[in-house]
């Protein structure tokens, strides 16, 4: 299915968020996720099913003021 990952369209085979993260190369990364603007806590990623067109945000620690 096609997802908007961090603003970019991409095709993903995975059906849930945890699998999608692994597929996209984020398996062991320190990050936080949101789907369609809603925060998805790490323990809930495996049960967070994705649908065509979902907006997935994958955020990581970054420099800040």
């Amino acid at each position: 299915m096609n997802l908007q990952v961090n603003g970019q369209w991409c095709e993903v085979r995975a059906a849930d968020l945890a699998a999608a993260l692994a597929e996209l190369g984020f398996a062991d990364a320190v990050l936080a996720t949101a789907v369609n603007g809603q925060f998805v806590p790490a323990p809930e990623r495996a049960t967070a099913t994705l649908a065509e067109g979902d907006r997935v945000e994958i955020l990581a620690p970054m420099q800040g003021g």
Partner: peptide, 21 residues
Amino acid sequence: TVSLRREAAGERAGQAFWSLV
């Protein structure tokens, strides 16, 4: 202070920054 930003799978800039902090 730190922030959260979109992470690119290839670069993994956030992971490097977090280990530095």
